[in-house]
């Protein structure tokens, strides 16, 4: 019986080690990427943010109503020209796939919008939009850096506010459309 017990201990050690090695401890749910190929090269992916339901936070100095309501924005002059927003990000078919921050910086009379789009199963993108908004309110910026899937990509991302005209009772007031155009790193010829 002692031999059986000792064999059991060995088996337990091996089984625990094998399970820890083979079974993934973290499994992020990934929705299929909905990407289309653009005629002049590159790939395009559309994200959107329904407002107000996908908004997690709006914090800005001097704003009478912060979101969430109990948010206490620091009353410090150093943060006087900053507005921070956090959102949930949807893919093209309206499924939440990530979290994004949008920071609006007003400095020296110019506005800069910085986006960080974080998709847990894929990676993150950092986009800086320095251009003034176009007539239709859209703004375009460069994909400055990325992690994992987006690490080797360059490209542009544009934001556009689209008012909802569906008239449905529970429809959002509108949505922010983010259109990302990715360009992969050039491959070396063999």
């Amino acid at each position: 019986m002692l031999k059986t017990f000792l064999f059991g201990i060995l088996l337990g050690i091996v089984a625990a080690a094998g399970a820890l090695y083979a079974i993934p401890a973290v499994d992020q749910e990934r929705r299929p990427s909905i990407i289309s190929v653009t005629p002049n090269g590159g790939n395009t992916e559309l994200f959107h943010i329904n407002l107000p339901m996908d908004r997690i936070m709006v914090g800005a100095p001097g704003r009478s109503e912060q979101l969430p309501e109990k948010l206490e924005w620091p009353d410090d002059e150093v943060l006087s020209g900053v507005q921070v927003e956090l959102f949930k990000v949807n893919n093209a078919i309206g499924k939440v796939i990530g979290v994004a921050s949008r920071v609006l910086i007003s400095e020296n009379g110019a506005d800069v919008v910085d986006w960080v789009i974080h998709l847990p199963a894929r990676g993150s993108m950092f986009v800086t939009m320095r251009t003034a908004p176009k007539e239709n309110g859209s703004r375009t910026g460069r994909l400055r850096a990325g992690s994992r899937e987006f690490g080797l990509l360059t490209g542009i991302v544009s934001e556009r506010w689209v008012v909802d005209t569906s008239g449905e009772e529970d429809a959002p007031s509108g949505r922010i459309e983010l259109t990302a155009t990715y360009i992969g790193a050039a491959e070396l010829l063999q």
Partner: peptide, 12 residues
Amino acid sequence: ALVLGVFFGAVI
């Protein structure tokens, strides 16, 4: 004995 052994093995 085997079950106890496996349990102790996992704990070790």
